[in-house]
Design a protein around this nucleic acid. Structure first.
Lengths: 259, 259
DNA sequence: ATGCAGAGTTCCGACTGTCGGAACCTCCAC
DNA sequence: GTGGAGGTTCCGACAGTCGGAACTCTGCAT
């Protein structure tokens, strides 16, 4: 659909980087070759280049993503916002004892910038850097709720994706939820992204837009304190204040869309 | 010294990515062209590719590093360790109210994986992803202290780099400090990385190696609680326990060197 | 309205880096 | 010893890349 894609070594390089299975340990050249579908000699050449560039690290036992990429990832404006938000997220994490997440909206997806999970947490799908459909997450809903309702039509995918039987895939239902979320200042979600997990989220506002959102996720059968929602709103507005301050001093005009 | 470097589009692509000034807002094509030293048409072509790949994002006002890179950066084994460490780092940050950092050793450099700074902190040099000479930081010292003393010789750069007049650049002095750091379980640093800032660090041990280290940084003229050092050691050993657990279940044999 | 300046985009022929099969090397297990 | 898997090197054909130059567009000063 997108037309003929121009082949490029860059594409292969990124395919290769994405072939690193985050759940695996260090990977060998052959494993990477199979995972990426690229010929061994090509992988060999690419890896050598990537090692030179610090994007990949080599050790006796194999290859792994290099810490050099971490630096690049942190340079995104969203990463800067994350730094400012961290202390507040940490407080919220400590107070609730549950999973706290911070994310931004990209197209119709939520992209997680940070996640603070309890030590014993069942590994949730949301990982730092991962993308989830906005309609299936509390964070996504509160972010969508701050979008211009007219623009929203362009975002919404024709058949909205679902992750569980409880996911909201009906447009009118979603629109209704967004309206109430907007007025309440928080969005909720129950078993819609992952069975057994629920979530509440509040947005970090800036000039009327939502540049990001904070959420607390917890087992659906767990009772959360009544003040949870106001704590979320407080956290989000504290972050907002810091972001505006941080941008004011030292940085030129920022537009919400630039995060 | 490294011999003739093979030109590659990959090199240019990374030069371009590094040309993004982390302290600036979104950058324009022309700015990037000047910053990277690459011709405009080349930058144009490269950016188009990188946008396709999600490494760069485009908006009316310019280009910025994309959140796609965040995902890759988080996939490094070190990033996994960081996830496990976060809650403990957050506790330490809350308890001390000072800057908490988490880093690993790469060659003779310390690479910061995480930094939790107080809201009003004077921006320190250490940023997520940044590299600092090991001999100038408390984290670096405690990590070096856990290296095999024989291997150490290969690491130590002939003229050790200094960052302030207080930096330790004398080999015997450093070796002596490493020895006491090893026996005490913590390393210290005063004005050696940045004037007016001090730091204490403890290592996260694994099979006798140090896979990472935690530090608390504070203004040199600030008195820190007496229990700071034991709190640091506790934090580090909690992280170590989680790391060993995390690796044990689900992941194959890990070697300390693989982080 | 006019002209200038800088940003962004497109074009195209020369060039050169890239491609990947195949042969080769190394280590370990049986 | 032998088989097999992982890793490395080679090289000729090919195709992607290069970047100067020309062009458009927008904003601003005159």
């Amino acid at each position: 659909m997108t037309g003929a894609e121009t082949p490029s070594i860059l594409t292969k390089a990124f395919d290769l980087l994405h072939a690193f299975n985050p759940h695996e340990r260090v990977m060998t050249l052959s494993e990477l070759s199979r995972a990426s579908g690229l010929p061994k000699s090509t992988v060999h050449r690419l890896l050598a280049r990537l090692v030179d560039l610090g994007a990949v690290e080599h050790h006796r036992s194999g290859y792994k993503i290099g810490v050099g990429l971490l630096q690049l990832g942190a340079s995104t404006p969203a990463g800067y916002m994350r730094d400012l938000a961290m202390p507040y997220l940490a407080n919220l994490h400590r107070w609730t004892g549950q999973t706290v997440a911070f994310a931004v909206l990209r197209e119709f997806d939520v992209v997680y910038l940070e996640k603070l999970a309890p030590h014993d947490s069942p590994s949730s799908i949301a990982q730092v850097g991962s993308r989830l459909p906005a309609n299936c997450t509390a964070i996504g809903k509160i972010l969508l709720a701050h979008e211009n309702p007219d623009d929203l039509a362009a975002f919404l995918p024709s058949p909205m994706p679902g992750m569980t039987p409880h996911s909201i895939t009906d447009v009118p239902t979603l629109i209704a939820q967004l309206r109430t979320a907007r007025s309440e200042g928080v969005a909720r979600e129950t078993d819609e992204a992952q069975l057994g997990l629920s979530c509440v989220a509040a947005a970090v506002p800036m000039n009327g837009f939502a540049v990001g959102a904070v959420s607390v996720g917890f087992p659906t059968d767990t009772a959360m304190p009544a003040q949870l929602e106001s704590a979320l709103r407080d956290t989000a507005s504290q972050v907002a204040k810091d972001v505006e301050n941080g941008l004011a001093k030292g940085r030129a005009h920022w537009f919400p869309r630039e995060i």
